[in-house]
């Protein structure tokens, strides 16, 4: 028994040592994560619930992870992103309110260009699944509507690095818009009793593309390096409009964003640089 334990321990030690030796020469890809909170001013038009535009404020949170592909280091990266938004809006007369709670998961890829010194352009695409619930409690038999969409779209980021006070700052501009996908839109006259008790979901799923669903998310942020991470502040907007079943929907979000970015491998201070084979997507 002792011999077996000794052999097993030796084997484990050997593997760990070997992998440590290999790590010192093999590139190790870091995952760069970003946490972001936002204060959002929102406009909502959902004619299934009301023909009026509801306006209000909300709060949002977003987490994203970026990493290079193993075989395309420095050239191609992938990103996954999860965001949620909760908002409370009112009609122009403040006689009725509409609540919004939504979440979105996106996954995308970017090709990295470096046309100028300090300028990095990330161009690619992403796919996203959006699920949101809008509720207007004053309504009868149409008190709730669901935003559900699966999108495939363009994603681009322009990063410009510059030095100030011996620190590297980055200005970042981001642009995204969907090109095609699927979306759920109820029939205007159909009640939720028919759809969810009666199971009649006919004519609620629609192919979407630039002819009936337009969205544009754009944002500008300034990244400020600190000891162990990079903080950012910025503004962004999401403008979404779509139509089907003789209804026109609209949602405009105006966000003020604050957050920070960090590599999952935490180092002790900015001056303690990671080994040269540890590669972040920000490089």
């Amino acid at each position: 028994m002792k011999r077996i334990l000794f052999l097993f321990s030796w084997l484990c030690f050997s593997i760990l040592t070997l992998s440590g030796q290999t790590d010192s020469v093999r590139p190790y890809l870091l995952t760069t994560s970003t946490e972001n909170v936002s204060l959002t001013a929102i406009d909502l038009l959902d004619p299934y619930l009301s023909p009026l535009v509801y306006t209000g404020v909300g709060v949002g949170y977003q987490h994203s992870d970026m990493k290079y592909f193993k075989r395309h280091i420095g050239k191609m990266s992938h990103e996954s992103r999860f965001s949620i938004l909760a908002a409370n809006t009112y009609n122009p007369q403040y006689s009725s309110s509409m609540n919004y709670v939504g979440g979105q998961y996106q996954w995308g890829m970017h090709y990295h260009f470096r046309p100028l010194d300090g300028l990095r352009l990330l161009v690619g695409g992403n796919t996203g699944l959006l699920m949101a619930v809008k509720s207007n409690e004053r309504n009868v038999n149409n008190p709730v509507n669901v935003d559900a969409a699966l999108d495939l779209g363009f994603s681009g980021i322009a990063n410009y690095d510059f030095s100030l006070w011996r620190k590297k700052f980055t200005v970042s501009f981001q642009l995204e818009f969907p090109l095609l996908g699927m979306m759920y839109i109820p029939m205007q006259g159909a009640s939720y009793y028919e759809m969810f008790t009666g199971g009649d979901l006919s004519n609620t799923l629609h192919f979407s593309s630039l002819h009936n669903r337009l969205a544009r998310t754009s944002g500008l942020k300034l990244e400020i390096p600190t000891k162990n991470s990079t903080w950012h502040i910025g503004v962004s907007t999401t403008k979404l409009k779509y139509e089907a079943n003789d209804m026109f929907f609209k949602q405009n979000n105006y966000n003020f964003n604050v957050g920070y970015t960090y590599d999952l491998y935490i180092f002790r201070g900015r001056k303690n640089l990671p080994p040269h084979n540890f590669i972040s997507v920000k490089q």
Binding site: S50, P51, L52, N91, P92, Q93, Y94, S95, S96, N136, R138, N139, V140, N141, N142, G189, S191, Y193
Partner: peptide
Amino acid sequence: LPMSSEIPNGWMVR
């Protein structure tokens, strides 16, 4: 089965 909508002054119609 009744449903709801509203007019510009915020009055709801069922």
